[in-house]
Nucleic acid binder design. Structure first.
Lengths: 351, 351
DNA sequence: CTGAAAGCGCTTACAG
DNA sequence: CTGAAAGCGCTTACAG
């Protein structure tokens, strides 16, 4: 049994003051004699006082005002549709506690739009922020404004270490590349070649995807058994004609490719190409449980998808902000989520 | 904005009675005129009343009394050490809400001990139970007692469909066998044989493990490319001499085994044998992130471990009981957790 | 600078 | 059968 929790009243009695005074001290609302303040602080510490946040929530009319700033999910980039669901689940779970969430989205391909939306976020006077730092320079300047105003922010999807983020929840990007490398090594004949494809329309993502590529390639010299060539191309324009053109070319030069690793979430585009060309003998490994990817996983064209739990990223983001702002709990700063290895046989449990 | 929540007071005003009377109606504490009762009920329904459980928690002195009945983790069976951690995490998260948890454990090899402990659980007058139904017959009789007393119970690790369980949180056992089958198929040369080993000391587990074996074997005729023999043995005595004896024998008769699948959590025992015999060419696939298994996974002797999230099973079990008992939320009855595919490269994120 | 009081929405005992 | 009141631990405005 834990010892009975101290209340404000207990502190007040021991300090020989009223509970109003104790409250003023604890909330640093000033207007308290220094001597009284010290006495109250000491007693609070002695009693190991922590507020009963049920009582606080019952009384307080103030709602916690959280704001998310994430990319708008689009036809071309449906990866971002899962993120809102995680936040909504967190809000529901917190239900009787007064928490609001405003979701602001920006165009994944437009830095200016990001800046505009960042300003809008600021105008909402948020208590805390959930942010995907897609555009590095613009994100840094936004984060500086937040820090100046003492508004805590958590990153999802990636983090910028130069900023004062409260927490990051997401993938260990390099390591997820290594996992892909290991799986590739397991299913690729020793003498076959391996191709890495970067399908990134916007240059900003390159850093992110590069990291995965690094991790992927690092696996082979250290731990792999594959002896084939490791090829690496980028296809910035993801229109299907362009993809056909580029992949045709590389297949022509390298007919012995055993596995293709796609570093982003658009492996279905390569799968589309395989289907239209009637290619069956090359393995595909990609990222993220988009509907189209999952369909190709189930039909066997994609062998593995790596999942990064987008829903859990934002769910935990909201929870950490709540814990920090309402319960004064300082969260683990970097929380890497497990790297999920998803196949046609276990995919249903991840949807 | 949701419409403002109705309070007991609102109902009282509309019904022209006092809040005490409303409370008596809502809690079915009787002593209310039938006409009053009906009126209050109707108004409560009209206003879509639901209690503010923050206020309730603040006032109520009654603690929720949860009890778990799980196997004792042992040297020989450390699988069960993760389960308490999940429950403790749930209790911590619920913290200011008044929830107690008593953990009762039983001997995994002794039905009589289970019965004795089940009686002890009953004597604790629990409000809700978390149960691993290892012994089928004894569990059924215990569950009947619980149902008679209106005590809700959730299963982890497995479920008995003949009982009135509130919820099950755990693996889809058959499907997890299929996942193992698929992974085996991917890493085993087409012509090599495949061996399934059942390392089960107590006969009770056979049902469980059989299910995995069924799932495993079902993969090959439907979707596999492996053409080798599928062998299947049980080794009830897991002493290392016995294992050596049995595996030696089967290797002698079947020298072309490419992969061994161990249906339970003791794959490290086969790995021990591999190490002492200097065997390197056979793949090992097993279950559960026990320390010894993880060590062999990292050193490359075990290729895959399948994880069943023991910690999350009990975490969710506690949460569901709390939601049900305190918030009147009826949970999803069967919640299959994802089947985790764990390799040396992603294992650290699962520990 | 400090205290006394009201009130958040509920539960509980008591008086009638 | 029903109502009025106290109190859970906190916050907030007001009086002095």
């Amino acid at each position: 049994m834990p010892p009975k929790k101290a209340r404000i009243k207990d502190i007040a009695i021991l300090a020989g003051v009223s509970i109003g005074t104790v409250d003023r001290v604890l909330h640093e609302r000033g207007e308290v004699a220094e001597k009284t303040r010290e006495k109250v602080m000491r007693i609070a510490k002695d009693l190991d006082y922590s507020p009963n946040f049920i009582a606080r929530a019952l009384k307080t009319k103030k709602r916690l005002n959280l704001v998310s700033l994430l990319p708008e999910p689009t036809e071309d980039n449906p990866f971002w549709i899962k993120h809102p669901q995680g936040m909504e689940r967190a809000i529901n779970e917190l239900d009787p506690f007064p928490v609001n969430l405003s979701q602001i989205t920006f165009d994944l391909l437009d830095e200016n739009d990001f800046q505009k939306k960042a300003d809008r976020v600021l105008n909402l006077h948020p208590d805390g922020i959930i942010l995907a730092p897609i555009f590095k320079a613009e994100s840094i300047s936004f984060c500086e404004k937040l820090s100046k105003r003492n508004i805590p922010f958590v990153f999802v999807d990636g983090f910028i270490k130069e900023t004062k983020f409260l927490a990051y929840i997401g993938e260990d990007i390099f390591q997820s590349g290594r996992v892909a490398g290991q799986l590739t090594d397991m299913i690729t004949p020793v003498k076959k070649d391996i191709l890495v494809i970067n399908l990134a329309r916007n240059i900003q993502n390159v850093h992110h995807l590069n990291n995965r590529t690094q991790g992927f390639l690092s696996y082979f010299p250290e731990s792999g058994k594959n002896k084939g060539n490791k090829l690496n191309i980028s296809i910035p324009n993801t229109a299907s004609e362009k993809i056909k053109q580029e992949v045709d070319r590389i297949f022509h030069k390298n007919p012995d490719i055993g596995t293709i690793f796609i570093t982003g979430s658009k492996s279905y585009k390569i799968a589309d190409y395989f289907v239209s060309e009637g290619i069956h003998s090359v393995n595909l490994i990609g990222y993220d449980l988009l509907e189209k990817n999952v369909a190709y996983l189930k039909s066997g064209i994609i062998k593995f998808l790596i999942g990064q739990r987008p829903e859990e990223q934002t769910y935990k983001g909201v929870k950490k902000l709540f814990d920090y702002l309402s319960l004064n709990k300082v969260p683990e700063r970097i929380e890497y989520l497990p790297i999920d290895v998803v196949t046609s046989e276990n995919v249903n449990f991840f949807l």
